Simulated scan of single mutants.
Amino acid sequence: MSSASRPDAKTALRPGLVAARRERVAGRDRAEDDAAIAREVLAVAVELGLGPGDTVTAYEAWRSEPPTAATITALAARGIRVIVPVTLPDKDLDWCDAADDRRRPLGREAVAAAGLVLTPGLAVDTVGTRLGRGGGSYDRALARRGADARVLAVLHPGEVQTERLPADAHDEPVDGVLTADGTTWF
């Protein structure tokens, strides 16, 4: 596929993925998913050797996204610093400490301190190509992550695509997918 057709292919896929997500979310127990995702993230943090004083990025989920509130709370209870994104006017991401009610910016480079980066997405294929909402915010941020950071897209069960998703040179791959049903590393 030529790079000129890829944005069109991505744009064409999004409405179907959003519609499928709406149907999928309607049948899920949000509180149960929130708790299951938090347990799974904590297990991954232990697997990666992350503990008090380490940093994990998370995000504050939209209603249709897999919930992350319990994850943020559980990580903080373990002494792990959680930073969440703030979308800037140029669609890049700055970061702030989730525990900071004033949401003071930490800078675009704060993601480099994270040992685990949790990202939203609409879908991921089995080689780690992530399709987001189209702003490129996370691709820019992931390019600044630390060399040893692991990246997991947080999805609903059933959102991993068996067919390859379109990708451009700037698209940053993820290392796996985390859902309420478990984690799959690629």
Rank of each mutant, 00 (worst) to 15 (best):
D97M: 08
T179S: 14
G16F: 01
R6N: 05
V124T: 10
E32V: 14
Q161R: 15
T126I: 09
C96Y: 13
L165N: 03
L13F: 08
E163P: 05
L116G: 02
R39P: 06
V117L: 11
A77F: 01
R78D: 10
L13P: 00
G132F: 01
G49V: 06
A70L: 02
S5Q: 14
D101R: 14
E60A: 10
D34C: 04
T11P: 01
I80M: 09
V56S: 09
A74I: 04
A19Y: 08
T55Q: 00
E109T: 15
D54W: 03
G176N: 09
T73S: 13
D125M: 05
L17N: 03
D101H: 11
E172F: 06
A70W: 00
A110F: 04
W95N: 06
A167V: 07
E109C: 11
A114G: 05
G136C: 10
L118Q: 00
P7A: 07
G121I: 06
G16P: 02
L142S: 01
D171Y: 02
T11L: 11
R81N: 07
R103K: 14
L48G: 05
A38R: 03
E172T: 04
A45E: 05
M1K: 09
T71L: 06
D94P: 12
L13D: 01
L116T: 01
V82N: 01
A58Q: 08
D100R: 06
C96L: 06
P15N: 04
T11F: 03
A45R: 08
P166T: 03
G136Q: 10
A76K: 05
G49C: 06
A45H: 01
C96W: 08
L131E: 01
S137T: 02
Y59Q: 06
